[in-house]
């Protein structure tokens, strides 16, 4: 119902555009470092652990590059990045909107005639739908680089083997799957967080609870959606 109210014709397009740009900056630029940092370690750990598991088997070493690439593209980059973003961005959104509710900012906007559900939610959702897939694509690339850094300089395999693995058995559809997941997860984490913030009642304890609930429910729904998408597309 809230999303129904949120998706409506803006009172003034330029105001919504400005707010969307601000949100893109907050969600996108503000999350690059944390997403990049996590992505490096995802790739690095995946490479090291598969090297350990494949050690002594007949599976060729270059398979590590292939596994790192596919596991990050299909699963780890979209899911882990969005779970982290649910914590960082989701809690921030819930606290921001909840704080506005408590300080009567939302009431003030309502009295002015602003469609608050639309003005406060739509720019955030659109911004997330644009920038989170970009962050996920960046995370996938950095993860593959992370796998390289943890396996080649440490002597787990040669440079040529890792590159060969990364270039082997490439399925273009997996990239689409990554972006579908990123879009769905972006929608979940922003809409759930906006809902939690928008409906805050009470004081600072309730605001903290809303912020926590935003993260918890977003995470649960992201994992559920991850399973559904995996079951549907693989």
């Amino acid at each position: 119902m809230m999303m129904g109210t949120a998706i409506s014709k803006p009172e003034k397009f330029s105001m919504y555009y400005k707010e969307t740009m601000r949100q893109m900056n907050d969600i996108g630029i503000g999350s690059i470092v944390i997403v990049a940092l996590i992505a490096v370690f995802i790739g690095a750990v995946t490479a090291v652990q598969f090297a350990y598991q494949l050690d002594g088997t007949l599976v060729p070493q270059y398979y590590i590059g292939y596994i790192v690439r596919d596991s990050t593209i299909i699963e780890l980059a979209p899911t882990i990045s969005c779970l982290v973003l649910a914590g960082k961005v989701g809690s921030n959104i819930a606290a921001e909107i909840g704080g506005m509710r408590q300080k009567e900012h939302i009431d003030a906007m309502e009295i002015m005639g602003v469609n608050t559900a639309s003005y406060l939610i739509m720019p955030k959702v659109i911004a997330a739908l644009v920038v989170i897939p970009m962050l996920v694509a960046m995370a996938a690339f950095i993860s593959i680089v992370g796998g390289y850094l943890s396996s080649v300089p440490t002597g787990l395999m040669s440079d040529a083997e890792y590159i060969q693995g990364v270039r082997s058995f490439f399925v273009q559809r997996n990239i689409s799957l990554m972006f579908i997941k990123a879009l769905v997860f972006a929608f979940i984490l922003t809409s759930v967080s906006c809902y939690q913030g928008f409906h805050v009642k009470g004081g600072s304890i309730e605001l903290g609870k809303a912020s926590t609930d935003a993260v918890v429910f977003s995470d649960i729904l992201i994992l559920l959606a991850d399973y559904i998408i995996a079951a549907m597309y693989t």
Binding site: E11, K12, S14, M15, K103, E104, H105, D107, A108, I111, M112, G113, V114
Partner: peptide
């Protein structure tokens, strides 16, 4: 309709000018 709230309900992230200009920008 104009309304003055008990705690003023001014938008913290905006300057005084931006606060007053907000309805003009919007409508």
């Amino acid at each position: 309709v104009g309304m003055l709230f008990q705690a003023s309900a001014l938008f913290d992230s905006m300057t005084v000018e931006e606060n007053i200009r907000f309805p003009l920008d919007m409508f």
